[in-house]
Amino acid sequence: MFRAGDHRRDGLLLGAAVGIFGVTFGVLASASGVSAFKATTMSLLVFTGASQFAAVGIVSSGGEPLSALGTALLLAARNGVYSLTIAETLPRNGLKRLIAAQLVIDETAAMSKAQPVPEVSQEVFWVTGISVFVFWNAGTLLGVFAGQVVGDPLSWGLDAAFPAGFLALLLPHLSDRKKRLAALLGALIAVISIPILPQGLPVLAAALGAVVAAGVGNKKGKERHP
């Protein structure tokens, strides 16, 4: 069993690790020409890492704003699923619930789902959520100013930095068979639709990979779902 306090320390450490992502977001945003004020506002209000990277990445490569928004929102949809699954361990009403909602992300969902006791689960949620929020925003701020120093050389290869970052975010998903299939189909749909669809739509079309993969998974592994 866990010793008392271990999960608090884990939550704090996870937040510090996310702070490094925050620094890289700040640097890339700055190198992409997003102002310091806008980048830090994004981290405060959007507070969804992959969506922020996607929005800045698409806009900086000259993409359509609506495509950037659509893609970033598709990447944020999973937070709704996290909310559904951990809702019963979070405060039921009032301001606390509104604040808790903003803190529902990959890290808080994973940490609180790992705790079987509801009270402990909620405590872990708050410790992790507040820690990630503070470090993510402090990291962004630091990165924005670091980006003003290193941003110029970085901008030479910026168009490769974004996809490499998305690849690093994708890799952990690939250990799951169904998610791997969804990724493969998403990539395939994007390749096929680039010459056919107007700019900005291929990445949105890639989302259909998830729909097709869900159908295939249904036929092959019905007994897997309790």
Partner: peptide, 16 residues
């Protein structure tokens, strides 16, 4: 929904 993030990330990598 669980396949959405990997599918969109993969599409984004390809497009970019």
């Amino acid at each position: 929904l669980s396949g959405l993030t990997p599918a969109v990330l993969a599409g984004l990598i390809v497009v970019q």
